[in-house]
Design a protein around this nucleic acid. Structure first.
Lengths: 336, 336
DNA sequence: CTGTTAGCGCATTCAC
DNA sequence: GTGAATGCGCTAACAG
């Protein structure tokens, strides 16, 4: 039924070792023999069995990528970066969606490890002890991308979320705003949600603006959430003149909520966020935001992983990529 | 270094066959023995090697999914449907992005087949002879989702794109529009791009509206493309009063181009499209569009694949799921 | 340059 | 219920 390397060997009148050599591009084969083998392969429609190869060689040339939420544009952009570099180094990648569920993340890590991937890339999300535990059982290298672990034991590639948030809020302050609201993500995630919150506080602090609890509300990173929380701000007796939103998607909700209330962005209220997903320039006004180099985060983390898999030495196993403030149309100076 | 089934056997004082049985939930094991084995597994931190298992059993319990463009929300939603059903039937799925390149699609199909997946799901995109050829070499079942092949030889799950387009344009006509532009995708793709074009023509035809070549322009499904093409329409001496756009993303571009020109949607120009991605309701005005049941397309195709993998008989191997016109805010009656 | 020989880690007969 | 033996398809020494 299925044609094996042995069938090819017989057909070509050589040994299976030779077939293996030509299939694996081993140079130690006479061109003539190589040709014979290729013809036999063609004739028989032979397709190498990666499973058998993996068992024999103890390498699968594939890396597992766990993606927290396949429908989140951030992660899909990171995935592109991962892929391009993976292809460059001739690794296959297998993507596993984890649906934002911690339990599923752990499960996926384990099945990936069972499948004997040569390395693991873990994207996004908060890193808990359970994660660390799962990573520890791995005999292959692991790198985090677009997230970090607090303990700092696992190689990672990410931006400095606190600094990014700081820069965003700081821009608002430079534009004369002093009543600045924030729509945050969950504070439970230290590497991301909480970091952005800290950046916000830090910027206020530096400018000598007192922190006002009523100016901070928690959203869930979704568009609808942005709308909802913004309504709260709009009903405040002294509503903020600018809002810092933890991600672009919520920020679009914020813009629409403001517009739906008959106000204008940025004339009445300025809005700034973080991420710079494609959608950020698919709104009117276009979003001013702090860009995360998503593609690069993916590319660099994959490159780091290849080094680790090759047992090359790496200087820093925790790399922080630069972010950039992208000025568009949603922020204006505050006129008092 | 790595602990094998054999180590567990020794540790538990049983044979490897027994360990294999408990790992695979074979009922023919005395509870007491089972317990001993589990303890040994725990103690040693044994993790089954899926590669070895795959070689021995000739099954990998994983299905390969090729996704044409991971950053396209349509496909990621379809992928969710696939995943949920796959989990339900205890299959792992490995996602492979093909970057909208035919050459890469073929390559990915082949590596997936080499990896001995138990089945293959091919998403989106035009199906060429090369694809068919690649599928033919597969010894495992293949199903297409969100696309169809013309020859009808491969099982598939999709909507009737022509009918969907027809319904969209028909709505416009019922609202009194007779000057209806269309922004199409490539006409090279029979199952999708061309089908929507045919639906447009069909609707005009039925209403006795003469077809006007200048009212049809080809875009590339991207936001920017929607903007660009719409500008062309706006400069037409007798510009259309309504535009049918082949997908939501371009339609958002259309809406913005119209607004940027100082006109209003839908008061001045109505816009309707196809897909109903999340973003369709993240614009002002919210898009009236024909919904594709993306999640269901994924779920149904995965279900179909499980049947095929089990060699169960299926009644129809080409299933067409219903679409639905979603009325929102971007279409208004035409006032002459 | 090419062939022979051993496994890789496990599922699966077939006995007992 | 359990164990012993065999082989899945291939790579990797090793020998020649």
């Amino acid at each position: 039924m299925t044609v094996t390397i042995y069938d090819v060997a017989r057909e070509a009148g050589v040994s299976m070792a030779t077939v293996s050599r030509v299939v694996n591009n081993n140079p130690n084969v006479k061109p003539q023999t190589r040709k014979k083998v290729f013809e036999a392969i063609e004739r028989l429609g032979y397709r190498p069995n990666a499973v058998a190869r993996g068992l024999a060689s103890k390498k699968t040339t594939t890396v597992g990528v766990v993606i927290p939420d396949i429908s989140n544009p951030i992660f899909s952009e990171v995935a592109r970066g991962i892929e391009d570099i993976a292809n460059m180094y001739h690794y296959n990648i297998i993507l596993c969606n984890a649906d934002k569920k911690k339990e599923k993340e752990i499960r996926v890590i384990n099945t990936l490890l069972e499948k004997q991937v040569d390395g693991l890339l873990f994207m996004g999300g908060a890193i808990t002890d359970e994660h660390i535990q799962a990573f520890k059982t791995a005999t292959v290298p692991v790198v985090l991308c677009a997230t970090t672990d607090e303990s700092g034991t696992i190689p990672s590639v990410d931006i400095d979320h606190q600094a990014a948030a700081f820069d965003a809020v700081n821009l608002l302050i430079q534009y004369g705003h002093r009543s600045i609201g924030m729509i945050s993500g969950t504070l439970q995630d230290p590497s991301n949600g909480n970091a952005r919150y800290l950046g916000y506080k830090q910027a206020l602090d530096k400018a000598g603006i007192p922190f006002n609890e009523n100016y901070v509300r928690i959203g869930n990173y979704k568009y609808e959430s942005g709308i909802e929380v913004t309504k709260y701000f709009l009903e405040l007796p002294n509503r903020p003149t600018a809002i810092f939103v933890a991600n672009d998607e919520m920020a679009i909700g914020t813009v629409h909520a403001i517009q739906d209330a008959g106000l204008k962005v940025p004339d009445d209220i300025s809005v700034i966020s973080v991420d710079n997903i494609r959608m950020a320039s698919m709104v009117r006004p276009q979003l001013t935001t702090v860009a995360q180099p998503m593609y690069d985060i993916g590319a660099v983390s994959m490159r780091l992983l290849t080094k680790l898999m090759n047992k090359e030495s790496v200087d820093r196993s925790k790399v922080v990529l630069p972010h950039e403030v992208i000025i568009r149309e949603s922020v204006a100076p505050h006129h008092s």
